[in-house]
Structure formats: structure tokens, C-alpha cells
Simulated scan of single mutants.
Amino acid sequence: MILNRDFYQRDAVTVARDLLGKVLVHETEEGITKGIIVETEAYMGTKDAAAHSYKSKPSGRTNVQYKEGGYAYIYLIYGMYYCMNIVTNEINVPEVVLLRALEPVEGIELMQKRRGTDKIKNLCSGPGKLCGAMGIRTDNYGMDLCHSQLYLEDKTYPKPIEILASKRINIDYAKEAKDYLWRFTIKDNKYISVKVN
């Protein structure tokens, strides 16, 4: 079952936790790829110094963050890696969840071809890696996750999930926000990007 709008129309921290165990799906001309979400980070907009929408108004790449929850916010970092975020909450509350890692479950050969590696643990163990494996780029920016070929499925994770909360990665510039425990991972999952301390 595809997740509906109501799922996304909550605060980013809540959605970030609840996304763990859900399945990201991308249907493309090359084929379908799927991965279980095993690591997320919440970015809480105007009250979060690490967020792109902190102290800003809707403009340029952040425009989609001001829509209602359930849209894809994609951007390029270091001029070479794409990152996929999911817009959450209500209109004009610019919160997002960054997808940091997936456990590949379908279309693995296509993922390997896209990433140029046969190491399954390395296919989606980071924001840039998962976008590469899933074929997600800036042309997916603004896609409605409730009505497009990029969406999330609510499936039962094979075992009970224990969630770990930790500090977010690579945001040392964000003053006190760098210490917020807004990174969420499935405990003992081998596909996460960085081991939880």
C-alpha cells in the first residue's frame, strides 16, 4: 500500500522515526528499484540551524519545502551527489526528512549497474549512494510521493524494529543544533551509513 498524504503531514521528527522500515520505490524506464529505509535525519525548518530553510523564505531550491507534506526535495551536494529529502508537516512549515540509507530489496542488479559495484552493503549506505542506486536526480525534485513513480510503500519489516536516536552527520556548522538527536537508525542494521556511537 502506498503511503498517503496524512502520513507526511506531521512534524519531521515523528515522520523520520516512522519512515524506518518503510519501502522507497522508484519506477523508471530501466526498471523498478526498492529499498527499506533504515536511516533518516529530521530537519525542523525555522527552528533548526542545520536546515536549508532556517532563517529563509521560499525561494529557489527550498520552494517545495513550503508545500504540504509528501513531496520530494532533491538537491546536489559537492557538485556531484544527490540527496533525497521528504517534505513533511503542513503548508508553510518547511520541515524535511533526509533519507540516509536503504536496505536494497528489489532491482539489485540495476542498483549495482548504476553504482558500479557488486557490494550490496555499499549500494545505498549513504544519501548520495542511495540516490545513485535508485536513479534519483534533480529531475525528481518536487515529485508528489502520493501520485508519481517515486513513492513509499507501507510494508511489514521482517522483525520488530528497535530505533536508535543519535546526532546528525556532517552539520558541525549548526551551533547547538549539531547536538540534537534527530538521526534515527534501525538498531543492528548492517546497511546504515555510519555506525552509531
Results as ranks from 00 to 15, higher is better:
residue 33 T to Q: 10
residue 62 T to C: 12
residue 52 H to G: 00
residue 39 E to S: 01
residue 43 Y to Q: 04
residue 34 K to A: 12
residue 63 N to E: 11
residue 29 E to K: 15
residue 38 V to F: 06
residue 35 G to P: 11
residue 54 Y to I: 00
residue 45 G to K: 00
residue 43 Y to E: 07
residue 41 E to P: 02
residue 47 K to N: 11
residue 38 V to N: 02
residue 58 P to L: 13
residue 31 G to D: 08
residue 39 E to R: 04
residue 45 G to S: 09
residue 47 K to R: 15
residue 59 S to H: 15
residue 56 S to F: 10
residue 64 V to S: 05
residue 47 K to L: 07
residue 41 E to H: 03
residue 59 S to N: 13
residue 43 Y to M: 10
residue 33 T to H: 06
residue 56 S to V: 14
residue 46 T to G: 09
residue 45 G to F: 01
residue 33 T to I: 09
residue 41 E to Y: 03
residue 55 K to Q: 10
residue 35 G to R: 03
residue 58 P to W: 09
residue 30 E to H: 14
residue 29 E to G: 13
residue 38 V to Q: 04
residue 39 E to P: 02
residue 47 K to S: 06
residue 39 E to G: 05
residue 36 I to V: 08
residue 58 P to H: 07
residue 53 S to H: 02
residue 32 I to E: 11
residue 40 T to A: 04
residue 30 E to I: 09
residue 30 E to F: 12
residue 48 D to V: 00
residue 51 A to W: 01
residue 60 G to V: 13
residue 59 S to D: 09
residue 33 T to Y: 01
residue 56 S to G: 12
residue 35 G to T: 05
residue 55 K to R: 13
residue 47 K to F: 07
residue 45 G to A: 06
residue 39 E to N: 03
residue 49 A to D: 11
residue 35 G to S: 06
residue 63 N to I: 12
residue 52 H to I: 00
residue 31 G to R: 06
residue 28 T to Q: 05
residue 34 K to I: 09
residue 54 Y to P: 04
residue 35 G to Q: 01
residue 29 E to H: 14
residue 51 A to Y: 03
residue 32 I to R: 09
residue 63 N to W: 15
residue 62 T to I: 11
residue 62 T to W: 05
residue 60 G to A: 11
residue 38 V to H: 06
residue 64 V to N: 03
residue 36 I to A: 02
residue 32 I to S: 12
residue 57 K to A: 15
residue 55 K to H: 15
residue 44 M to Y: 08
residue 46 T to W: 11
residue 60 G to M: 07
residue 56 S to C: 12
residue 54 Y to T: 01
residue 30 E to N: 11
residue 37 I to V: 11
residue 58 P to D: 08
residue 63 N to S: 08
residue 29 E to N: 15
residue 59 S to Q: 13
residue 46 T to L: 12
residue 41 E to V: 01
residue 64 V to I: 08
residue 53 S to A: 11
residue 64 V to M: 04
residue 51 A to E: 00
residue 60 G to T: 07
residue 29 E to T: 14
residue 46 T to A: 14
residue 37 I to H: 05
residue 50 A to S: 02
residue 36 I to K: 06
residue 27 E to Q: 12
residue 33 T to N: 02
residue 56 S to M: 15
residue 48 D to W: 00
residue 54 Y to L: 08
residue 58 P to F: 07
residue 55 K to D: 14
residue 62 T to D: 10
residue 51 A to Q: 00
residue 43 Y to G: 03
residue 55 K to P: 11
residue 57 K to V: 14
residue 40 T to L: 03
residue 58 P to M: 03
residue 56 S to H: 15
residue 37 I to L: 04
residue 50 A to V: 01
residue 57 K to D: 13
residue 36 I to C: 08
residue 42 A to L: 09
residue 38 V to W: 04
residue 43 Y to A: 03
residue 33 T to C: 12
residue 27 E to A: 10
residue 60 G to L: 14
residue 28 T to S: 10
residue 43 Y to N: 10
residue 41 E to D: 03
residue 35 G to H: 04
residue 49 A to Y: 06
residue 57 K to R: 15
residue 63 N to A: 10
residue 42 A to W: 02
